[in-house]
């Protein structure tokens, strides 16, 4: 009797172990099969955005070129130059960048993007133009630091998108 009971107990124990291992295996399988979701903002989007807007041709002309791209307009702003039509280069830079960012990263309503910040600074930390920002900062963000050195001067562009 005792021997029979022992055998039955062993069998139940073995079966329980198998069931437990199978359940744990299924849980791990479930996690591995779960699809990874696309990020709301990808890093490559933010990087490409900065590279693209630096090449944007503004309506600020000078004597050498017809119209300046943003990259050269930043240098013109630092050197306190004016456009051919007497507008301040920094004002043109600020308004153009504000327009570009507003159209590219919509923040109103129930959109996934909650806010953004753009900062252009010199090597010593001085802001070239006032900070351009909109919306709220959240704990989820994608940001890029883009250094560039036109004609030996060092500038840094910080752009962060919050979602």
């Amino acid at each position: 009797m005792m021997i029979k009971k022992k055998a039955q107990e062993e069998l139940i124990g073995f079966a329980l172990i198998i069931i437990l291992v199978a359940i744990i295996g299924l849980i791990f399988l479930g996690f591995s099969l779960k699809n990874s979701q696309k990020e709301i903002v990808e890093s490559y989007e933010v990087e490409s955005f900065i590279q693209a807007f630096l090449q944007y041709t503004t309506d600020c002309g000078n004597y050498r070129e017809n119209y300046l791209p943003i990259q050269k307009l930043i240098s013109a702003c630092v050197d306190d130059k004016t456009c051919l039509d007497e507008r301040d280069s920094c004002d043109v830079l600020s308004s153009t960048l504000t327009g570009i960012i507003e159209e590219s990263w919509k923040v109103d309503g129930d959109r996934p993007i909650q806010g953004y910040e753009l900062k252009i600074v010199l090597e010593d930390g001085t802001e070239v133009i006032p900070l351009i920002s909109k919306g709220n900062s959240t704990k989820n963000s994608k940001g890029v630091l883009q250094p560039f050195m036109p004609l030996g001067e060092n500038y840094e562009i910080y752009f962060t998108v919050y979602y």
């Binding site: 693209a52 090449q55 944007y56 041709t57 017809n66 791209p69 570009i100 159209e103």
Partner: peptide, 13 residues
């Protein structure tokens, strides 16, 4: 512009 060719770049997606 004014009979002169120049490079015009715009932001696109």
């Amino acid at each position: 512009i004014n009979g002169e060719v120049y490079d015009k770049c715009e932001l696109a997606k």
